[in-house]
Amino acid sequence: MKVAQATTAVRLRRLSALPVIVLIVILAVVLGFSSPYALASQNLINILNQQVSLILVTVGQVMVILTAGLDLSVGSVVSMTTAIVSHDIPFAVPLAIAAALSVGLVNAIGILRFGVHPILMTLSTMTAVQGIALFVRPIPGGQVPAWMSTYASSVFFGLPLPVICAIVVVIVAGAIISRSRFGLHLMATGASQDSALLGGVNTNRVILIAYLLSSFFACLGGLNLAARLASGDPLVGSSFAIDSIAATALGGTQLSGGLGGITGPVTGVLFLALLGNGLNLLNISTYYQMIIKGALLILAVSAHRRSQPGL
């Protein structure tokens, strides 16, 4: 029977997260044996809390990558957000959100209206927004509203509030991507804009929303980071673009668009963090850590290539 052996679409999407899930399990086992401290719950919570911002940014990045785009400007948006909210001005937070959304809007206009390649478009806004961040706050410092510091240091049921928020965001985003109409339209647009358009998907709107969401989530990441660091830093986000893309790819979401989900990329973030933390605990030098990370990234990403009929 032909039907029995064929891959179902939902299964394929789930499978895309498999390699990194396997990797993280292996890593956990290895670390558990080699350092008694590695899997201590307090250590794991520390790692989670540290990764909240990157997880938020990655959620947005995934949306864009599913449309076969790429958003390099997320790191600058993170920096700009921390720069804005660390100033003692009224409506700092709404202002930061509005600024971030306008970056997403500019990205989408450049890509949709003027046909600029996503990499070039977001590379340009990345540079420009970095400039804005430096302009707004040339030197790290400043102060965030008191409620933000309270948010960052609150703990409920043993979990820091930022971690709880991240879990909620990931669940909601996961539902949007895998269960909502918009999610399906992201996949359709990413596989072929022309076909999706003929199939009744308003691809321009899908892409616009994807870039807006990416900037919005980057802004959330920036707010969380500013709260955690209780200050603004115009360069603090510089690694976020690359890290979020690496985690997305590691999590089995295709950079060519149209295939993936949220579980893989979030697991990818946690994997990279756990790896860094574990290697630190094992007293392995930073240089070796970078080599190991690069090698694992190649390994994990190449493991995805085979499970893809029709793409």
């Binding site: 201590a40 520390n46 540290q50 660091l229 830093d233 690694s239 933390n277 630190n280």
Partner: peptide, 22 residues
Amino acid sequence: IVSDAGGDVNRQVSDIESLITR
């Protein structure tokens, strides 16, 4: 114990928290 944050202050916060818990 030497931990290195790779230039990331966010990670350095965790590194310090991690040293406290240890």
